[in-house]
C-alpha cells in the first residue's frame, strides 16, 4: 500500500468549508519540474507548509511568502501566492517592512540554516525580539546546499563539507534556543519524516499572533548526504527517527548520539507565549497619537 495515501487518509484534516487538501491548489504547476534534487527534504517542508496553510484557511491572495537565498529560498517561488525572493540572509528584514506596511497580509518567511543563522543571524534575533506576526520556517539541512555543500552554523561536529575537509570542529547553534532567548512567541522543531506533526507545528505557528520560529530538520541528500555516506535519501529520512528526541524524551547521557544530528536535539513546541505582538502595539500607539491622546 502506498504509505502516503494511508497518511493522507489518517491525518487529513478538513478546512471549515470541508475541502480536502490538494497540494496542486497551492502550487505554480507551470514551473514544474522543480529544481530540487531527488529526496531533498525541502520539498517535504513545502508540502507541510501548504497543508498547514490550507488547514488554516488562509487566502492565497493574502499570503505573502518572503524567502532568502539558498535551496530553501528557491522553494517559495513554487507557491501560488505573493512570493518574494529577496537577498541572502535578509528575508526577515524584508518581511518586517512588509508586515508593518500591510498587517492584513499573512507573512511567511522561508529561510535556510545559512541564510537565517549565519548572514541573517542578527535579523533573526531582532525579529524574535520584536515579536511581529510573522511565521518563519528555517529549513535546517546543516549545510549550504545551494553553493555546493560548505559548512554552516548547524553543521555537526566531524561532518565533512567542502570547507571542513578534515571534519568540522566548529560548535553548532541551537536555533530554537536562540529564538526563544530572543523572545519569539512560538518556537518549535520537527523532522520531515513526521509530515503530519510538521504540518501541525506549522499550523500552530500560522495561528499564533506573534513571531513564530519553526526549525524544520531537512535532509540535503545531494551535497551533504553523499559526501558523508549518509545513505540513500529514504535511509537519510528514516535516520531521523533514530536521532530525534520527541517532546517527552528524557535526555540520557548514556545514549550515544547518532552522527547525523547534534546531541540532545528535541522536537515539538518549545514556546507558546502571549507576549504582545509588535504590530498591534505599534498601531495602538499610532492611533492614540492620531487622536491626540498621547504626546509624541
Amino acid at each position: 500500500m502506498n504509505k502516503q495515501v494511508a497518511l493522507k487518509a489518517d491525518d487529513a484534516k478538513k478546512t471549515a468549508d470541508g475541502k480536502e487538501f490538494n497540494i496542486r491548489d497551492y502550487l505554480r504547476l507551470d514551473l514544474f519540474p522543480h529544481f530540487m534534487c531527488p529526496g531533498c527534504g525541502h520539498g517535504i517542508a513545502l508540502r507541510a507548509l501548504l497543508w498547514a496553510i490550507h488547514e488554516q484557511g488562509i487566502d492565497k491572495d493574502k499570503l505573502a511568502v518572503v524567502c532568502g537565498i539558498g535551496c530553501s529560498g528557491r522553494v517559495g517561488g513554487y507557491i501560488d501566492a505573493n512570493t518574494f525572493h529577496t537577498t541572502h540572509g535578509r528575508p526577515l528584514a524584508y518581511a518586517t517592512g512588509l508586515k508593518m506596511a500591510r498587517p492584513d497580509l499573512h507573512v511567511v518567511v522561508i529561510t535556510g540554516d545559512g541564510d537565517c543563522l549565519a548572514i541573517g543571524g542578527n535579523h533573526l534575533i531582532h525579529a524574535a525580539r520584536r515579536n511581529l506576526d510573522i511565521t518563519c520556517l528555517m529549513l535546517n539541512n546543516e549545510i549550504y546546499g545551494m553553493t555546493g555543500g560548505q559548512g554552516s552554523p548547524t553543521t555537526p561536529r566531524d561532518r565533512f563539507t567542502t570547507t571542513t575537509p578534515a571534519g568540522n570542529r566548529e560548535p553548532v547553534f541551537d536555533a530554537c534556543k536562540l529564538a526563544e532567548a530572543a523572545g519569539a512567541g512560538y518556537v518549535g522543531r520537527e523532522v520531515t519524516i513526521h509530515l503530519p506533526r510538521l504540518r501541525d507545528l506549522i499550523a500552530g505557528g500560522l495561528a499564533h499572533k506573534g513571531f513564530s520560529f519553526i526549525e524544520v530538520m531537512s535532509d540535503c541528500t545531494e551535497v551533504n548526504g553523499r559526501k558523508n555516506d549518509l545513505g540513500s535519501s529514504p535511509e537519510m529520512v528514516l535516520g531521523q527517527t533514530r536521532t530525534m528526541r520527541p517532546p517527552d524524551y528524557e535526555y540520557d547521557s548514556n545514549v550515544v548520539d547518532h552522527p547525523f544530528r547534534p546531541s540532545g536535539l528535541h522536537t515539538g513546541v518549545f514556546v507558546q507565549s502571549d507576549r504582545p505582538e509588535y504590530g498591534a502595539a505599534y498601531r495602538d500607539m499610532s492611533e492614540k497619537l492620531q487622536q491626540g491622546r498621547t504626546k509624541p
Binding site: F84, T87, R90, T96, G97, M100, A101
Partner: peptide, 21 residues
C-alpha cells in the same frame, strides 16, 4: 510606520519590503 531597525542592511530591506506592500 516608523521602524528603527537593527542595522542599515535591515533598514534598506524593510524599506523595500514596505514598498512591495
Amino acid at each position: 510606520v516608523f521602524l528603527q531597525m537593527e542595522d542599515e542592511i535591515a533598514s534598506m530591506a524593510a524599506t523595500l519590503g514596505a514598498s512591495m506592500g
